[in-house]
Write a protein that binds this DNA or RNA. Structure first.
Lengths: 348, 348
DNA sequence: ATAAAATATGCAACCGATTGCATATTTTAT
DNA sequence: ATAAAATATGCAATCGGTTGCATATTTTAT
């Protein structure tokens, strides 16, 4: 049974009558240390239950092997898929992950960004909170040349690296599909258009309408917080409209699913009376009845992409590396909630 | 514009013609430092853009202000709710959170437990992987008196603190409710019964059958991995049964939702022909049609409870504190998928 | 006015690993 | 046998804070 005490290289050095330097080098598999000595060191370290002290090492080497991640919330399918992707790559490369959730509050985002700095993370990955408009809290990272990358909800500035999907195109595709299916009055329910994701989807929606000769009617645009409550309110509003809209494009599957269910309960036939397209391809979208058409949003891949990019930044000493924007493929998935007739872009 | 250099207390000391000790104490708001001096120190620190170095501090103080969390996977509604709860409490108490996902692999769980030890986390919170049977990797935490707590999927050992729900009672309640609704042949689809959560739900299911004079039929018990694929296979198996089961208790809402949808497509009326109860109260359960009865599983609260308990362990120097098991309330929520007639325990 | 107490600051060791440089030892070449 | 080269190990400074103890300064009490 080994001791209760935490073993350091000094303990190993004493036991083997060697200097701490040799132990340190031995454990790092440094070629300057004799093979036999090395073996002895490894064996003794194991036997004594040695674990290196991350802090002493970090203090000396000035890097922490830790990546900070700030997301708006942890309990979301999309976010957790992104995190799973980040975690996979990060841990595979021997890094750890420090996570905070801003809870959509810009204030907390600022605070946690500071904490990440304190903790000397080697890099930071951020998905912006809904209401962040000032980005000064990220400047220290730029100043200290600490890689800072954004994913999904990003800063509209070419100087930052980011991973996104083409939200504008996706919004366009979703809307065009609804038009293809014969919709003429299409409601769009979306989130805070301050953020690129919702703003761009809206732009895509409007462009699709214009391109197909349908006037943009601001009565049909609902900017909400995409919660269940908002969904219910939106349904009430829709049901009061005259004439009733015949298409619905919602920026989020959960919200779309709630609308679908409530509209159905109100006697509206989906997709005959109203065709619906969601966004995200959450598991939710396969469970509604009828199944929800949606935009496939590759959360895990986005996480993997941003993490891979970050790891590359860290291994390349090449500080001159330019900021880059990676756009991952998103695609319309047509399911029952919007499928009225065979038309151009059909996928199942 | 401040410098590019990272500022240390030595820089502040030099600028103010004070010793680093005074700066250190000043920044800690130590009463030994004169109020005016303190003010000067804080102002200068701000002005110079000082950020304390976590590692130097940790190395000296021998604690890291970091809590490790190991979960089976990040992309799950339940887990992300638990994490959100943990994060809330942990960050509120000034700690950071280091997260790893074992991806249900015992091997990775062992590896990440070691990493957490290396990183000298002040405490560790674990939800066990599906196939972990040997728990020796946790012994170093016990040996070094580092608080180790489990949540949801736990070790069956009174010496460890944990936060759980009464899975056995919940299984009993779900099954009894189905029996109340007139079900006689109830299929139970569950996960790996090596883990307490699935084992106990199964035990509750069996006890309810026995208590109501219904024989336990092992043909009706499906031990699966609760994925979509398993759900589909289970449905095929159910449809081949003769006579058809009239009740279905599934240990997971997503899996239950898939079953519900497929059974409905096969022409089975829910709940008339087959009543269904899920588990978790995922958002999913409100979206199915008919809405899914389920067990409300307070993920966020469980996270908050386990984190609060951990923080208490850390602030009490009292090492003698006994291991405790916290059982949070879980409850049956009856929705349309199982509601045939008014009966004893009705909740909406 | 002087001693005692309270307050404020500094010195220097320490946490545990890393690493440039110096030194000791062994091997190889002449 | 001796010098040169290669190999192996050690010394000591360093990373940036923290803290016990000593010392200097000011305040209070007698």
């Amino acid at each position: 049974m080994s001791q209760d005490k935490i073993i350091t290289i000094y303990d190993i050095a004493e036991k083997l009558k060697l200097s701490p330097s040799t132990i340190s080098r031995g454990l790092q598999n440094n070629t300057a240390v004799n093979a036999k000595t090395k073996k002895k060191i490894f064996d003794t370290a194991n036997e004594m239950g040695y674990r290196f002290n991350t802090f002493a090492r970090n203090l000396r080497t000035q890097n922490t092997n830790t990546i900070g991640v700030i997301v708006p919330r942890l309990n979301s399918y999309f976010i957790s898929a992104v995190l799973a992707g980040i975690e996979k790559v990060i841990n595979g490369a021997g890094y750890n992950m420090l996570i905070s959730q801003s809870l959509e509050s810009s204030e907390k985002e600022v605070e946690y960004t500071k904490t990440m700095m304190h903790n000397r993370v080697d890099g930071l990955i951020v998905t912006l909170a809904a209401d962040t408009t000032n980005f000064d809290h990220f400047l220290p990272f730029v100043k200290h040349h600490i890689p800072l990358l954004f994913v999904d909800r990003v800063i509209d500035d070419e100087n930052y690296s980011k991973v996104v999907i083409d939200n504008s195109k996706s919004g366009y595709d979703a809307t065009t599909h609804l038009i293809d299916q014969g919709c003429k009055r299409i409601v769009h329910i979306t989130g805070n258009t301050l953020r690129n994701v919702y703003r761009d989807r809206k732009l895509g929606y409007e462009k699709a309408l214009i391109d197909h000769g349908i006037p943009v009617d601001h009565e049909l645009l609902f900017e909400t917080d995409l919660t269940e409550v908002s969904a219910l309110k939106s349904v009430v509003k829709i049901l009061k409209m005259n004439p009733l809209p015949d298409g619905l494009f919602v920026s989020n599957d959960f919200c779309a699913a709630i609308c679908l269910k409530k509209l159905k309960q109100a006697g509206i036939k989906i997709p005959e009376d109203m065709a619906i397209v969601g966004f995200n391809n959450d598991t939710t979208s396969r469970i509604t009845d009828p199944a929800l058409s949606t935009i496939n949003y590759p959360g895990q891949e986005m996480g993997e992409a941003v993490a891979t990019n970050l790891i590359n930044c860290l291994s390349n000493k090449d500080i001159s590396a330019k900021a880059q924007t990676i756009v991952l493929k998103s695609e319309l998935i047509v399911r029952e909630s919007s499928f009225r007739r065979e038309h151009k872009p059909i996928k199942l």
